[in-house]
Nucleic acid binder design. Structure first.
Ligand SMILES: [Zn+2]
Ligand SMILES: [Zn+2]
Ligand SMILES: [Zn+2]
Ligand SMILES: [Zn+2]
Lengths: 132, 132
DNA sequence: CAATTGATGTAATAACATTACATTTGTTAT
DNA sequence: ATAACAAATGTAATGTTATTACATCAATTG
């Protein structure tokens, strides 16, 4: 699932997200790609759908926005669950994962016989630069 | 912040959410309250804003929907951070909190000098009944 | 009572996402 | 090579979620 085998639209969307220093909404991405022939939201949403599937992009639920994965080659645990610290001021996103957190959440859902499919962890606040 | 001192609109919105067995979108709440004089989304959003502030209602970011708090009288740690297990099939929501998870996330953000304001934890999947 | 504050009513608009349908491109089987 | 199929794309329309702007009303306070 490397960049080689992305389609044209997928590649364009991924490039835009990769270069961005903050999360982008689908419509912001659309605007960035008008010059490359994008005309409709669906072109963005379809590309994003695939990129999410490939694990190359993450959706930030609390922002309705998207970021390129910060750990594309992390082979310790290919994206079991990922967490984000998101700065409300500058938009900077720190992506991380923590097995202890995963294990605790796992233990809880198992105790409830709940079958987890996807877990969202998003910490909103101020990054070190903005909090200073 | 008990139900006594809610305004009329806040009380109506809270009642609807309390009786619901699943999360509700703002527009679904609006429809439920048309008979009580609600006409516009803003009436719902304004009431929700206060109820969220009071800690009587939670917003589910991954659903753009709202639920009444399941632990209104939990005095162990008045809602430091709360987590949700959400069934994708029946919509049932299990609200819980776990200090170990909170501590781990806390440790991470402290190590980054990040100042956390609000943390979202949502586990989507299938409840025991629906997974069977 | 005047002044302030909080809540409400209403309309319009913005922001985010999906459905439907037609067309094109790429792959596989014969 | 070509027929059949699957995947990707183009376009328009529509659906869903949330906010801005402005006027009015009610409660509180000095
Ligand atoms: Zn990632
Ligand atoms: Zn920042
Ligand atoms: Zn709660
Ligand atoms: Zn269920």
């Amino acid at each position: 699932m490397n960049a080689q085998q992305l389609t044209k639209n997928q590649g364009l969307v991924f490039d835009v997200l990769s270069r961005a220093d903050q999360p982008m909404s689908a419509y912001t991405i659309l605007d960035k790609l008008r010059d490359h022939g994008f005309r409709a939201p669906l072109q963005v949403y379809r590309a994003l759908e695939k990129l999410l599937e490939f694990g190359m992009v993450h959706r930030l639920e609390s922002l309705n926005a998207f970021v390129a994965c910060a750990h594309p080659n992390d082979n310790c645990c290919r994206h079991g669950t990922v967490a984000f610290a998101i700065c409300n001021s500058c938009g900077h996103v720190e992506e991380f994962h923590d097995h202890a957190v995963d294990d605790r959440l796992d233990a809880f859902v198992k105790s409830k016989r709940f079958k987890a499919e996807k877990t969202t962890i998003e910490i909103r606040g101020l990054c070190s630069a903005c909090a200073a």
